[in-house]
Design a protein around this nucleic acid. Sequence first.
DNA 1: CGCCAGGGATCTT
DNA 2: AAGATCCATGGC
Length: 296
Amino acid sequence: MKSSRNILNIHSTINSGQYFLWEKINNSWYGIYEDSILKITLPEIKGNLTYEYDSFPIIANWQQPIFRLDDKYDEIIEDISRRDKVVENITKKYIGLRIMRQKPIQCIISFLCSSNNNIPRIRFILRNLSRKFGKKIEWDNNTFYTFPTLKTLATISQSELLHCGFGYRAEYVRKTVKTIIDQEIDMQLIKDSDYVKSKQEIMKLSGVGEKIADCILLFAFDKVEAFPMDTWIIKLLQKKLGQMIIPDSELKINDKFTPSQYRLVSNKIRDHYGKYSGYAQQFLYYSIREENGRRW
DNA sequence: CGCCAGGGATCTT
DNA sequence: AAGATCCATGGC
């Protein structure tokens, strides 16, 4: 199965801080997904705009759900581009950037780990966790480790988590895993409900506040209107988007916002960008990181 | 040494 | 309801 690069740019999509367990080996990207290893091989011939997809153990046509190829991409780009010039320009520049659809548990643990942390370290910690507690898979002359299952996660001790590098987030992981195992949150409800109700439910998890909830809903639960606001997006709001989205507001955007400030700005911003706000956010985030010379 | 990293929980006013 | 503080860790 192949797809054109003008609707999917692998590099920007994988390197946009949404899905941490990918690594490039030679001319292929390898990703961790459930019990399988995903593989994308880049074209060797210049001008060839197709990718080749593979996986082991095989998952047929995995790229369709994972890169959300079923989304009406053109319509989404047109919709968010209409909202303001900033996003219009960025979507032109980085066309092909996609949102990926992750498995809930991996996504939840990944973003629990993201609080007050940076992307290289998030990757480092998640890889440690996988190496120690995931299933070993030998493929393509390489060794890979899957992400541990919920059941396995429940058996991991606090000190083992600390040894992976979770730091103070180890307690979040332990509590969150227990909450999910004990079915104290309703995963089906999160899948089926709208953004507001799903967010309320996912925020019952320890370590999941406003921002991380938005990430989980956007990257694992199809809530494409979620607009996660991290420190970089907040800087952008202070610098160039604030007046456009929150005109004449008495709200002062500080470097951190309180939960109520977050909700207020979130409401305004989702009103501004509409039902595909999550896509707008991902373009903005990627753009900021590119402009600031990301290191990862 | 301080500041920052895809923040959140908890305690204090 | 809004601030202040602490959280573990590494890069710069």
